[in-house]
Write a protein that binds this DNA or RNA. Structure first.
Length: 156
DNA sequence: GCCAACGTTGGC
DNA sequence: GCCAACGTTGGC
């Protein structure tokens, strides 16, 4: 059982897209980075929990939780020349890129913004900061709980 | 296998 | 839209 953080640009695919999808389930496709690919192919397992993070917006934030319902399999969008993530180096007989399927679990009570993440000492060594620009990040159980706590509205 | 040029990510 | 920080590509 592992925890992850998946980045997405909400203009392309948001948490709401996932929540509104058939069975609230969608493939997490289009990852074209080798480090992230290795996580998807080798380490992300059914039952793992995932924070969905919205990037490239005025206030980047973790907005919701998803769970992995299908482990790494070939990302066939790489074989489709009409797809924006087409990669001629990948082929069905020798897939280069991988994806997993995720299912929406719930939105956070309130988004945990990058600003909050940056200012929380317990998250100072989060993979988000040690591996900038990576789109798939491992999250420790401690970090996961810290972020869950931060997502709850402060009681008076 | 080095490394310069180029492309991408993503916060600001 | 800028640009820093990376990753990738390709000539040599």
């Amino acid at each position: 059982m592992h925890y992850w953080l998946f980045k997405t640009e909400p203009s392309a695919f948001s948490y709401d897209h996932l929540a509104n999808a058939l069975k609230q389930t969608a493939p997490w496709d289009g990852v074209r980075n080798y480090q992230a690919r290795n996580f998807l192919r080798d380490d992300v397992q059914v039952g793992d929990e995932v924070f969905v993070y919205h990037s490239s917006i005025p206030e980047p934030a973790i907005v919701g939780i998803a769970k992995v319902v299908k482990a790494g399999y070939a990302d066939h969008t790489a074989w489709d020349s009409s797809n924006e993530h087409f990669d001629p180096k990948s082929a069905p007989e020798k897939p280069l890129w991988y994806m997993v399927d995720v299912q929406a679990v719930c939105k956070l009570d309130q988004p945990v913004t990058l600003n909050v993440i940056k200012t929380e000492p317990a998250l100072a060594h989060c993979s988000l900061f040690t591996r900038p620009r990576l789109s798939i990040h491992p999250i420790t159980a401690t970090e996961w709980q810290t972020i869950i706590d931060l997502s709850h509205p402060k009681s008076a």
